[in-house]
Computed example of a mutant assay.
Amino acid sequence: MPTPQSQLAERLADQFGLSAIRFRHFDSLVLADGPVLKLFVPRLRRMLGGRARDRMIDGELLFVPRLALKAMRAGSERFEAPDLVCGCPIANFPWLMGHAGKNDAGADPRLIVDLRQLVSLLPDDEPSWRALFGADVFARPRLETTVPLVAYLRESSPSPRA
């Protein structure tokens, strides 16, 4: 049975014409495809002070070397959670939240445009990632890579700071 998270990822993929990658416990949208996959794992959160059905899209950006993907079993379209990964919550970029509302018509297209613009600031290949963030960027504990990743994206982004 599909989870609410996987249903959200499927709806967003359909709405924006994106491909999705399914992992054992979550689904993600492919924002950029290459030697390093740039993924968005969407989640819905209830909006405080709104109506009971008001929701906002939250989630995480994940960056995974394509070669680190392992199918759950031969021929499966689902993958094991990657061992080599770098990522950060999108809540670290407040300017994205203005487009994070979701209603019956779907999500605001500007959210995906802004997410793609943000991830385009990062390299597409592993050697460039390693040069920028260190040789073990994908193998370090998540918190150790999140802080420098967020700092780099905030400094590099032309988006307004909120």
Rank of each mutant, 00 (worst) to 15 (best):
D108F: 03
F40D: 08
L111C: 03
A74S: 14
D124Y: 02
M56Q: 13
L132T: 13
A74M: 09
A71S: 13
D58C: 04
L67C: 10
A81V: 12
R45N: 11
D108S: 05
W129H: 07
F63P: 03
A131K: 14
R116T: 03
F63Q: 09
L84V: 05
K38E: 13
G59C: 13
F133S: 05
M47G: 06
R55Q: 15
A74D: 15
R51S: 15
F133Y: 01
A71H: 05
L61D: 01
F79N: 07
M47C: 11
G59I: 09
G87S: 08
D54T: 14
P82I: 15
D124F: 00
R78D: 12
P82E: 14
L96M: 09
G87C: 08
E80G: 02
V85L: 10
V119L: 10
A91L: 08
A74Q: 15
K70Y: 07
R66G: 04
G87E: 04
L84P: 01
Q117H: 08
E77F: 03
P89M: 09
G59V: 12
M72G: 00
W129M: 09
L122E: 07
P127A: 07
D54L: 13
R116W: 02
P127D: 06
P35K: 09
A68M: 04
D124W: 02
F93H: 06
R73S: 10
L118Q: 01
A135K: 02
R66A: 15
I57S: 02
R66V: 12
P109N: 02
D83C: 00
R78Q: 12
L69R: 08
D124R: 08
D124C: 02
R73Q: 14
D58W: 05
I112S: 00
L67E: 15
G134A: 12
A131S: 10
C88T: 15
G50N: 06
L67I: 13
R53K: 11
R116P: 01
G50P: 03
G59R: 08
I57L: 15
I112P: 00
C86V: 12
V119R: 06
D54F: 03
F133L: 09
E80F: 09
G98A: 15
D114K: 01
C86G: 11
F79L: 01
L39V: 13
G59P: 15
F63S: 08
G87Q: 08
A100Y: 07
D125H: 07
M47E: 14
R110M: 11
R45P: 02
A107L: 03
R51F: 08
L62G: 00
I112W: 01
G50K: 08
E60D: 15
R55A: 10
F133G: 01
G49H: 10
V64E: 08
G49T: 12
R53N: 12
I112G: 03
L132H: 02
E77P: 00
L48I: 09
F40K: 06
D58L: 06
M72P: 00
N92R: 14
R53W: 11
P35Q: 14
G59M: 09
P65I: 13
I57W: 03
I90Y: 05
F79I: 00
F133A: 07
W95A: 01
G49M: 14
P42R: 09
F63R: 06
Q117S: 13
